[in-house]
């Protein structure tokens, strides 16, 4: 089995910054494993500006921010396998070595032995099953992040008349994006009395385009059998109960759900790490080490970060702590 000093799971901004920092702190033998065909993580589909103000002192788009790190990874000759999914991480009680099981098209299923593992798997969107909307589940319902990938990576506009449920940043950004592409966003409905995303996104994504933001409002019913034909919006009171008589039908061919992100932690939990119920990520010490010795976590897998700059900084720390851990052994 190939022995690696630090295996980094995930090649998004967290994984790349952690790898660079581990290298700077003396680790030669590093490997990044990334599920997608490219490094960069979620940044590759975040084509809007708003990244890197702290790290680079200028406002970059997501792909530009990612590209700067990819360049550094290539310059430092840090090896990475793309198209490679990590399936399992096991820790040896005695030796404290980790066995990482992964799969890709070239090697099939393979195993690596690692001194340390840095978890940088990011987060994913809450499943839509978590939404309790009565009615059928016709075609035309997407999570905002899926819509973002379709529009920005594949060039496919999911619909023409859109209603967005939830006012998280991805939903707000997608309201503008789809408007620019010629769709009509008829409403953004938010259950809470305040928007979920940043005010700057409410202003530049909704107000700039006269897209109505309906607060204290949710989807009561989804209409349509094959394809969605509309939704009924309803006002809710402080206890999240629908207020009778406030129902409003809005026709649409697409409903986007922007209902929040949760850390991607199947691997972490399966490894037996103690989890933090509040953040959805693993519990970590002040050195970002999980309850499994020698396994560190950083970025959105630990907790959902608002700014990528914070992700990069935290990941640098994790890389340094991992390097120190290896040297101490």
């Amino acid at each position: 089995m190939k022995r690696i000093e630090a295996v980094i799971v995930g090649g998004g901004p967290a994984g790349m910054a952690a790898a660079l920092s581990a290298r700077q702190n003396g680790l030669e033998n590093i490997l990044i494993l990334e599920r997608e065909e490219e490094l960069g993580g979620i940044l590759n589909q975040c084509i809007h500006t708003g990244f890197g103000l702290h790290t680079f002192g200028e406002e970059l788009t997501g792909p530009e921010y990612a590209a700067r790190y990819v360049e550094k990874i290539e310059k430092e000759k840090i090896p990475f396998y793309t198209g490679t999914t990590v399936l399992e991480i096991q820790s040896e009680e005695q030796s404290k070595l980790k066995t990482v099981t992964a799969v890709n098209r070239i090697q099939g299923v393979f195993q690596l032995q690692a001194d340390t593992v840095i978890l940088a798997m990011g987060c994913r969107e809450r499943p839509r099953g978590a939404l309790n909307i009565p009615g059928f589940r016709p075609a035309g319902i997407y999570s905002a992040g899926t819509a973002q990938r379709l529009v920005n990576r594949e060039g496919y506009l999911p619909g023409r008349e859109i209603v967005i449920l939830g006012s998280g940043d991805i939903g707000l950004i997608m309201a503008r994006r789809m408007t620019l592409e010629g769709a009509r966003v008829k409403a953004v409905a938010e259950r809470l009395p305040h928007p979920g995303g940043l005010m700057r996104n409410v202003v530049q994504c909704l107000e700039d385009y006269d897209i109505p933001l309906k607060l204290n409002c949710t989807v009561a019913e989804i209409h349509g059998r094959e394809r969605i034909e509309g939704v009924t919006l309803v006002q809710v009171d402080g206890e999240n109960r629908p207020v009778p008589g406030t129902e409003e039908f809005i026709s649409c061919d697409t409903l986007l759900l922007s209902v929040g992100l949760i850390p991607e932690n199947e691997l972490t939990a399966a490894m037996g790490a103690a989890m933090n119920e509040k953040t959805g990520g693993p519990m970590v010490s002040e050195t970002l080490e999980t309850s499994v010795p020698g396994v560190f976590a950083c970025g959105n897998v630990l907790h959902v970060h608002e700014l990528v700059d914070h992700v990069s900084r935290e990941a640098e720390e994790a890389g340094r702590f991992a390097a120190e851990w290896v040297k101490k052994r």
Binding site: L198, M199, R200, V203, Q204, E306, L307
Partner: peptide
């Protein structure tokens, strides 16, 4: 109006 330059708003 709200400043949109950074997340502070």
């Amino acid at each position: 109006f709200i400043c949109i330059v950074c997340p502070n708003g």
